[in-house]
């Protein structure tokens, strides 16, 4: 189906979902389509959306690969960024430190998986606790106040460019394009697809399966750190307990985006659409004053429905042929 790993019917389904959600909310209150509301949705989607882009690579790598630590990497990275900013060093240095830290944390995950042969779900469960723990140790449990940081830094999360939120236009969009290019047009992307679908075949074809999977964790780590930077700039605070929902929500988004949890199929395009669905549904529920207790449940229902709809379509297609 489609290009490598891209499932067109899923993308179509997500677009229908998106239209239905927006249309439904607009039916209740047309104001939801106002620019202020749409940009708010986009702003809230960016951080978990970046986490989900990294998660996509890990899951597509196969062998049951998931990264449960992306939220924790975001938290620890933003704490390191906060410490640099607190010492009044250049903010660019802080951002660089955060991204490097993210890469190192991702590499630690990748090496533990590839060299020590520990299943990634165990590795990243352990590092999730470890990274959050370290973040608490570094801060003593206290949020780092970044509200007095240089305006150029805060603009990453609060500024706007030609009327659009800075982080949507100048961070999320370029990152998405880079990820799409990486997945669809490079040897790495093709190697990743083969690794995810059939790692024995990949190995026989001379692809460094472990190296590729290790690299997916590094990508997820760097992107998680980037999400941490954006979140710190948006809230003007570095928090050791940041992005706690991101660990699992990013996985839900990738699966909703059409990725096979066992590897291979899946695309960053699907993940982006799924991020938009989740963001719209989530924001619309709070905007329309729905009981928040149901929000988590609604996301679960969407996930199950989309998978079931997909199975139904596949089943029909198989019957016909």
């Amino acid at each position: 189906m489609g290009g490598i790993g891209i499932d067109r019917s899923r993308l179509l389904l997500l677009i229908v979902f998106l239209g239905a959600a927006l249309g439904g909310y607009a039916f209740i209150d047309l104001q939801i389509l106002a620019a202020g509301n749409l940009t708010s949705m986009a702003v809230f989607a960016v951080e978990v959306g970046i986490l989900a882009l990294g998660q996509t690579f890990v899951i597509c790598g196969g062998d049951g690969g998931v990264d449960l630590s992306v939220g924790a990497i975001a938290a620890l990275s933003q704490v390191l960024l906060g410490l640099v900013l607190k010492d009044r060093l250049a903010w660019e240095l802080g951002v660089l430190a955060a991204l490097c830290a993210g890469a190192v944390m991702g590499l630690a995950n990748g090496l533990a998986y590839a060299v020590l042969r520990i299943p990634s779900i165990i590795v990243t469960l352990a590092t999730m606790f470890a990274f959050y723990g370290l973040a608490l140790v570094f801060t003593g449990g206290i949020n780092i106040d970044l509200t007095a940081s240089p305006p150029a830094f805060l603009a990453i999360g609060q500024g706007s460019v030609i009327g659009l939120p800075f982080q949507v236009l100048l961070i999320y969009l370029p990152v998405f394009l880079a990820c799409a290019y990486l997945q669809l047009f490079t040897a790495f992307g093709r190697g990743l697809y083969l690794t995810g679908t059939n790692d024995l075949a990949a190995r026989l074809a001379g692809i460094g399966v472990n190296r590729i999977r290790c690299l997916t964790f590094v990508i997820a780590g760097v992107l998680a750190a980037l999400a941490g930077v954006v979140s710190a700039a948006r809230l003007g605070t570095a928090r050791p307990d940041a992005s706690e929902t991101g660990n699992l929500l990013s996985i839900a988004i990738v699966v909703l985006g059409g990725a096979d949890i066992f590897g291979g199929d899946g695309s960053v395009v699907g993940s982006v659409l799924a991020t938009m669905v989740i963001a719209v549904v989530d924001y619309g529920l709070s905007y329309n004053n729905f009981n928040p207790i149901y929000q988590a449940g609604v996301i679960g229902v969407i996930l199950i429905t989309s998978v079931m709809a997909q199975n139904l379509v596949r089943f029909r297609a198989r019957q016909r042929s």
Partner: peptide, 15 residues
């Protein structure tokens, strides 16, 4: 929010 996170609060405040 259903868990005590400031991200969740920020979303509600913004909406």
């Amino acid at each position: 929010p259903t868990t005590a996170t400031v991200e969740g609060q920020a979303e509600f405040v913004q909406s």
